[in-house]
């Protein structure tokens, strides 16, 4: 079909773009490598700033794109450039000729075990932001369930702003996520002392600063300015955290019952492969390269290939959704110009 559009990735960006393209009268083909839509958001519990249930967001979007052609557990096998578009072969054997491809390939959560000094996967009481959301959703995690949790720490910037870890970018959403999760833990463990270890608090978004003040005023979260340098385990299985309290200018250590690592956002490694099939290179920040980073962040130098969401860098859900809407319009304009 002459107006075929292939969307790679069924996260928020891919779903919202599909929704808009359906409203514009197209019937996009959406491929998702996992067995469900919603991307990382599907694994989350509640979303800042209004504590919207993540499942609700995914459910609403899913319902609105049921008219699209959706292939789950499907990947792009190869893409051939043709005179007027692209020939895309999927891993399920389906072959599509299309004029436009949207790479909404999203991000990988930084593998926290790479920060060896934090002991994720080694010390019993260390978990990630994602593990904690999983516990919020299921109540099932042996690091928390049935444990006497009296002191909890949140480590900001795990695999973000970290040249040695291979990602010097800020992941943007971790500061607010840490504060959100710190307050959620304080609700569940009212007697616990909760600490956030941060370098800067980057609270740029709508109502984020309100969250911060609320965390200070109502939840009594302790904010310690300093990056955690190393973690160890004591005889009781608690974790000992070392940091500098940079406001006091002195090294500090503290014993905690639970340590939550705010794993950052890095480019989806598999997306790099797909992008290379359509000659979309990697930018110096490690994410997919846009035509430019001011007005054409959703466009590429490859004709008919578009980008949306965290494929080009860390973004919040509203930012991702806004880009997805913009890209739907950009694709529409492109297809009209090709007629």
């Amino acid at each position: 079909m002459k107006d075929n559009i292939v969307i790679v990735g069924g996260g928020i960006a891919g779903m919202e773009a599909a929704r808009q393209l359906l409203l514009l009268g197209y019937k996009p083909i959406l491929v998702e490598k996992s067995d469900h839509l919603g991307g990382h958001v599907a694994d989350w519990h509640c979303l800042f700033p209004d504590m919207t249930p993540a499942q609700q967001v995914v459910k609403d979007l899913t319902e609105q794109i049921k008219d699209a052609n959706i292939f789950l557990e499907t990947e792009v096998s190869f893409i051939n450039k043709m005179k007027m578009g692209y020939n895309v072969m999927f891993s399920n054997g389906v072959n599509v000729i299309c004029k436009a491809i949207l790479l909404a390939t999203g991000f990988d959560l930084f593998d926290a075990s790479k920060k060896e000094e934090y002991g994720y996967g080694i010390y019993d009481q260390v978990m990630t932001n994602k593990d904690l959301e999983h516990w919020f959703n299921t109540g099932d995690d042996k690091r928390i369930t049935g444990k006497d949790i009296k002191k909890i720490g949140f480590v900001h910037c795990v695999g973000s702003r970290d040249v040695k870890a291979g990602n010097q970018q800020c992941s943007k959403v971790c500061c607010i996520t840490a504060i959100k999760q710190a307050m959620e833990m304080k609700e569940r463990f009212p007697d616990a002392e909760v600490y956030c270890f941060y370098m800067d608090l980057r609270l740029f978004g709508k109502k984020y600063e309100d969250f911060y003040i609320k965390a200070q005023m109502e939840s009594g979260v302790h904010f310690i300015r300093g990056r955690v340098s190393e973690v160890s385990e004591n005889l009781q299985g608690q974790v000992i955290v070392k940091t500098e309290d940079t406001l006091s200018g002195k090294p500090a250590k503290i014993t905690l019952d639970l340590l939550v690592l705010m794993a950052g956002i890095v480019c989806n490694r598999e997306a790099v492969q797909t992008a290379s099939m359509v000659q979309v290179p990697i930018d110096s920040d490690g994410f997919l390269k846009s035509r430019d980073n001011i007005l054409n962040i959703i466009e590429t130098d490859s004709k008919g290939v578009f980008l949306a969401g965290t494929a080009t860098g860390a973004k919040t859900i509203p930012e991702t959704a806004a880009e997805a809407r913009a890209v739907a319009l950009a694709i529409h304009n492109y297809l009209v110009s090709q007629q």
Binding site: D245, K250, P251, A252, K253, I254, T255
Partner: peptide, 8 residues
């Protein structure tokens, strides 16, 4: 003497 603050 150590200058480390023991936050415990």
């Amino acid at each position: 003497p150590s200058s480390t603050m023991n936050l415990d």
